[in-house]
Amino acid sequence: MKFGVIIETKEPEKAWNAFRFAVASLGKGHEVMVFLMGEAVECQGLTHNKFDVDVQMLKFAAEGGTILACGTCLKSRQMDGTELCPISTMADCIQMVEWADRVITF
């Protein structure tokens, strides 16, 4: 299956679980795309003593997952896209939803 995952939180445990789900889905042979929206665009580099979001994000990307970051949300925080989380648009999010068999939100 194709999973589109929309993450809207930078709360460490929730974001960590979202990326763990994405990594596990890739491990089961599913195709997965993640779209970061709102405060979730701040997830890259996010670490916590129990929930290391950054490690899960890097693992997801290393295993072939795609991460997109809302450009409007980045700009509102005076942030730029990165190689791991390139600037994307709402049209990209819509395209991901159209592509996906299932959309999961965190």
Rank of each mutant, 00 (worst) to 15 (best):
M1E: 11
K2G: 01
V5L: 05
V5W: 00
I6K: 01
I6Q: 00
I6V: 13
I6W: 02
T9I: 08
E11R: 03
P12N: 09
P12H: 08
K14Q: 11
K14N: 07
A15R: 00
A15F: 03
W16M: 05
W16F: 07
N17K: 05
F21P: 02
A22I: 01
A22P: 00
A24S: 03
S25A: 15
L26N: 00
G27K: 06
K28A: 14
G29W: 12
H30T: 00
E31L: 06
E31C: 02
M33R: 05
M33V: 10
M33P: 00
M33Y: 03
M33N: 04
M33W: 03
F35L: 02
F35Q: 00
L36P: 04
G38S: 14
E39T: 15
E39A: 14
A40G: 06
A40I: 06
L46V: 13
T47L: 06
H48S: 04
F51G: 02
D52H: 09
D52F: 06
V53H: 03
V53C: 08
D54L: 07
D54I: 08
V55E: 10
M57K: 03
M57H: 04
L58R: 15
F60N: 06
A61P: 06
A61T: 14
A62H: 13
E63M: 15
E63W: 12
E63V: 09
G64Q: 12
G64K: 10
G64A: 09
G65P: 05
I67G: 00
I67P: 01
I67R: 03
L68S: 04
C70K: 04
C70W: 00
G71S: 07
T72S: 11
T72A: 14
T72P: 06
T72I: 10
C73P: 04
C73N: 10
C73S: 15
L74A: 09
K75W: 13
K75T: 12
K75N: 13
S76Y: 15
S76V: 09
S76A: 15
R77M: 06
R77A: 08
R77W: 04
M79I: 11
D80W: 07
D80S: 15
T82I: 10
T82F: 03
T82H: 05
T82A: 04
T82M: 02
E83L: 08
L84H: 05
L84S: 02
L84N: 03
P86Y: 11
P86D: 12
T89V: 14
T89N: 15
M90V: 13
A91N: 11
A91Q: 10
D92F: 00
C93G: 08
C93M: 13
C93V: 06
I94N: 14
I94L: 15
I94D: 12
I94H: 12
Q95C: 09
Q95P: 03
Q95N: 15
Q95Y: 09
M96G: 02
V97W: 00
E98L: 12
E98Y: 05
A100P: 00
A100D: 04
A100S: 07
D101Q: 09
R102V: 15
V103M: 05
V103S: 05
I104R: 10
I104Q: 13
I104C: 11
T105Y: 07
